[in-house]
Design a protein around this nucleic acid. Sequence first.
DNA 1: AATGAATGAGTTTTCATTCAT
DNA 2: CATGAATGAAAACTCATTCAT
Lengths: 212, 212, 212, 212
Amino acid sequence: MTTASESSSHNGTAHNGTAIPRGQGGDALSVAAREIFAERGYHGTSIRDIAKRAGLSLSALYFWHSSKQELFAGLMEDSVTDYVRACDSALRDCGDDPVERLRAIVRATVDYRVRRRVESTIAAREIRNLEPEHAQRLAELRASATRLFQDIIDEGVRRGAFRCEHPAEARRAIQAACNAIPQWYDPEGDAGPAELAERYVAIALRIVGHES
Amino acid sequence: MTTASESSSHNGTAHNGTAIPRGQGGDALSVAAREIFAERGYHGTSIRDIAKRAGLSLSALYFWHSSKQELFAGLMEDSVTDYVRACDSALRDCGDDPVERLRAIVRATVDYRVRRRVESTIAAREIRNLEPEHAQRLAELRASATRLFQDIIDEGVRRGAFRCEHPAEARRAIQAACNAIPQWYDPEGDAGPAELAERYVAIALRIVGHES
Amino acid sequence: MTTASESSSHNGTAHNGTAIPRGQGGDALSVAAREIFAERGYHGTSIRDIAKRAGLSLSALYFWHSSKQELFAGLMEDSVTDYVRACDSALRDCGDDPVERLRAIVRATVDYRVRRRVESTIAAREIRNLEPEHAQRLAELRASATRLFQDIIDEGVRRGAFRCEHPAEARRAIQAACNAIPQWYDPEGDAGPAELAERYVAIALRIVGHES
Amino acid sequence: MTTASESSSHNGTAHNGTAIPRGQGGDALSVAAREIFAERGYHGTSIRDIAKRAGLSLSALYFWHSSKQELFAGLMEDSVTDYVRACDSALRDCGDDPVERLRAIVRATVDYRVRRRVESTIAAREIRNLEPEHAQRLAELRASATRLFQDIIDEGVRRGAFRCEHPAEARRAIQAACNAIPQWYDPEGDAGPAELAERYVAIALRIVGHES
DNA sequence: AATGAATGAGTTTTCATTCAT
DNA sequence: CATGAATGAAAACTCATTCAT
C-alpha cells in the first residue's frame, strides 16, 4: 500500500534540483504543517506556528520551503497523488467485474480517508486556497479519481449489474459519503477501518442499485 | 417558506436596546459578508473587503456589527436556524409514515442546499472558526437536524419499512450526499431543484433499504 | 515660483479619488520621507523610520500611502515635475535669444538644486529604484528637461551665438555640473544661491563657446 | 596600465595570516559583487545574490570576505585607489605645463570612467554606505584626487594660462562632468574612449578659460 | 576551500479594532 | 448613521551571519 513517505514534500523552489533531502528538519516541518493546516485551514494557519511545532525557527522553514503556498501545495499534491495511486493499485489487483471493482475502489477510498484523516480533511476543504497553477494540477488529479468511479458505475449499468437512472448522481453520493468520513470518524469508535469499509461498500452497492 | 430576512442578523452589542433596524446598510453588509465568507473562508476574508463590497466604510460596519466574529456567527446561526426551521415545517406538513417523512426531510434539505448555496458552503466548512460560545449553539442546532434524520430512519427500521443494519451510517451517508450538493451544483445544469430533490430522495430510500 | 506645496504628494491608491487631504499626518510623512530617503537611499530607508520621524505609527503611513514604492515615487515625481515647471516658467519670461535662454535655464536649475537639495539628491541617485511604470513617467519628465537644454544650445549654435562642436557633450557637461551642486553645497559657504547661479551661468556659457 | 587585479580585494579578517589567495572563487565573487552593487546599490544588494551570481555558496563567500561591508569597502577602495594611481601615473609622464597637466588628468579620468564604468557608478553613489572607518580612508583618497585637479588649475591661473575667477567652481564642474560619464556612456555609441577624452579635454580647457 | 542547515533581527504589509467628530 | 484618521499586533518573507562538518 502506498504510504506518505513515498512521495516528496520537499521539492519546491527553495531547494530544487538536487535529490530530495530528508533531514529531520524537512520532515518535521511537513508533519507539523499537515496537522496545523488540517486544524485551522490555510489562512488560519501561520507559518510561525508551523515552525514552532516543528521545533525550528521561522527562517529554517524558508530554507526548506520557498513560501507558505508552496509548502501547502506540496502537502495537497502529495496527498491526492497518494490517494489516486491507492485507487489505481486497488483496481489493478481485481478483475473486471464492476461489482468487484466498485468494492475495491470504495474500500481503497474509505481506507485512505480513515488512515490519512488529516490530509483528507485538508484536501476536502482547502483547494480554493491554492494558487491557479497548483489548483489546476490538483483538479486534474481529482478528476482522474472521479473518472475511476464513474467508469466503474457506467460499466456496471451497461452490463446490467447496476440499476441506476442517474449514474452521475450515484457517483457523487458515494464519493460524498466516503469523503465525509474524516469529519466524524473516531478511531476509538465501534467500527475499525475494515468494518467501516464493508459498511460503505454496502451503501455504495445500494446506491447504484445492485441486487445483493 | 422561511426566508433569510425573517431572521435577525443584527443583534450584537453594537446596536443594543433599540428595535432591530433594517436599513439598507445592515442588509448590504450581510449580503456582502455571506458572499465573501463563502468565497474565501473566515480567515481569508477581511472585514475591509466586506465593507467595500457593501459600499460602506469600515466604521459603518462596526455600527452594525460589534466584531468580525459576531458578524460571522450571526450569518452561520441564521443559516442553520433557517435550515432547521425548514425541516421542521416540512415534517409538520406530513403524516407519520417514515417513508413520507424521509422524503420530506430530504426534499427540504436538497431544496435548502440548492437555494441557499452560499450559506450552505460556509456552514459546511467554517464551524471551526466560531468561538466556543457560538460554536456550541451551532453544534446544538446541527445536532437537532441530525436527530430529525436519525429518528425517521430508526422509526422506519422499527416499522420494517427500511432494511438497514447500520442506521447511523445510513444517516451520515444521506446527509453527506445532500450537503455536498453546493460544491458542484450548477443552476444552469440539467436538473432543476425539484428534479434534483427527487433524485436524492431515491438515493436516500435506497441507502436505508426501502423496497420501492 | 513653483514651490513644493503646490504639488500633490498624496494621491496614490491608498486615498485616491477624493480631493487632496492635507492633514498634518500626510504632510509630516512626506517631509520625513524626503529627508530619510535623501540620507539613506531607497533601500536603506525603512518605512518604520519614516513613520517614526513623522511621529506616526507604521499603520498610519499605510493610510496615507499604499506602499513604500508609491510614497517614494510620489516624492520623485513631485520633485521632477516642480523642476521642469520651474524651467518652463523661467524660459517663458525671457525672449528668444539663446544666450538669455541659457542664462535663464541655468539659473533656474542652480536655484532649484540649491533650494531643494534634498529632493535633488534623491532624484539624482535613486531613479533605478522606481518600478517600471513610475520609472517611465520620470524618464519622460527628465527627458523633457534635457530637451529644453539641448534646444537652446542647438539654436545658439545655429545662430552663431555659440561655437560648439559637440553640443550634446556640452549639454551633458552643463547639466552634470549643475546636478552635482547638492553634493557639496554648503548654505553657510561663501556663495549664496544667486551668486552661485551667476558662476554656473558663466561656466555654461564657456562650455558652449559663447564669446563674452 | 593599472588594472583591477593588481590591487587586493581580499584582505579582511576571514582569511588572515596566509599569503593572499587568488583562486577562482575569490575573483568570481569580486566580479559578481561589483556588478550587483552597481546595479542595485549597497542596500539593494543581497549577499545571497552575489554568491549565486558567482556560482558559489553563501558560506564560500564568508570564507573570502568577513562581511558584506568588508566586501563592499574592499571594492570601493580598490576602485578609488586605482583611479588615483592612474592620475598620478598620467601626471608623472608629463611636464609641468598646466595645460598639458590638465589634459593628462582629464584624459586619465575619462579613460577610467569609461573603462571601469561599473566601479565608477558605485563610487559615485555609495560612499554614504561605508562605515565610518572605511568612509574616512575613501574620503582621503578622493580628496587627494580633487587636490590634483585643484593644484593644476590654480597653477594654471597663477601662470596666466587659465583665466578663471572661481577656480574651485571650475574644478567641481570639470569633475562633475567627467564623473557623470558612466551614467550615459554607451560603448556602442559614436565616440570611443579616446575621442571622448579629447572632447572632455576641450570642455575642461574652456571651463578654466584657456585660450586655444 | 567549501557546504548545508540553521538563526534572530529586520523588512514591508495587512488586519481587526477604536474614537473623535 | 456614517466617516476619516489612527493604532498595535501579527502576518509572510528576507537578511546578514554562524557553525558543524
